[in-house]
Amino acid sequence: MIIYKQFSFDSAHFLPQVPEGHKCKRLHGHTYHLTVFVTGKVREKEGWVMDYGDLKMAAGPVVDLLDHHLLNEIEGLENPTAEVLSVWIWNKIKPLLPQLSRIELKETPSSGVIYEGV
């Protein structure tokens, strides 16, 4: 079974590696929407895969590191594309949440990344 919890955070960034004149080279911001997926068996006693509160305790502090920050100033996010950011988030959450199976990160309502730790 797969369960999930959604988070959102607001961050600014710029993409230093894109060509001159590209709009994303300039400082701008996004309201990111992150969905964290956990895979596991339903525990017979509790009737759930895991407590959503435990999922929030694992992922919430990582989201807090990003919220209202300039992503380029965070170690490992000097070129914070959605792809780079999704891997960074995965690497922060996975040690705290071994059952993590997927994250989806939306940069805009119509653009985003799905990462499954591959």
Rank of each mutant, 00 (worst) to 15 (best):
F14L: 15
A82Q: 03
L70E: 01
V38K: 03
I89H: 07
E75F: 01
I93R: 01
L97G: 03
Q99M: 11
E75S: 12
N91L: 04
H33R: 15
K25R: 14
P16L: 11
Y32P: 10
V36A: 01
L105F: 07
P95W: 00
K92L: 14
L55P: 00
T39N: 15
E104A: 13
Y4V: 01
V63R: 00
D54C: 13
V62G: 02
L77K: 06
R26K: 14
L34T: 00
I89F: 02
P19Q: 12
G112S: 06
N91F: 04
G47M: 10
S111V: 15
V63H: 06
G47L: 11
K45S: 12
Q17N: 14
S110R: 12
Y32N: 07
T31W: 06
H28R: 09
G76Q: 06
G60T: 06
P16M: 11
D54A: 15
H30M: 00
K92N: 15
D64W: 06
A82H: 02
D51L: 03
L66V: 01
D64E: 13
N79Q: 12
V36S: 04
L55V: 11
C24M: 04
G76N: 07
S110N: 12
H13S: 08
V87W: 07
L96R: 15
P61C: 05
H22M: 09
E107S: 08
G112T: 05
V113G: 05
I89L: 03
V87K: 09
L15A: 08
D67R: 00
Q99W: 05
W88Q: 05
H33S: 13
S111M: 13
L34M: 07
S11K: 07
L27Q: 12
G29A: 11
S110V: 15
N79I: 10
Y4A: 11
Y115A: 07
G29H: 01
P19I: 07
L15Y: 06
V38A: 03
E107C: 10
T81Y: 02
E107N: 08
L96F: 01
G112D: 09
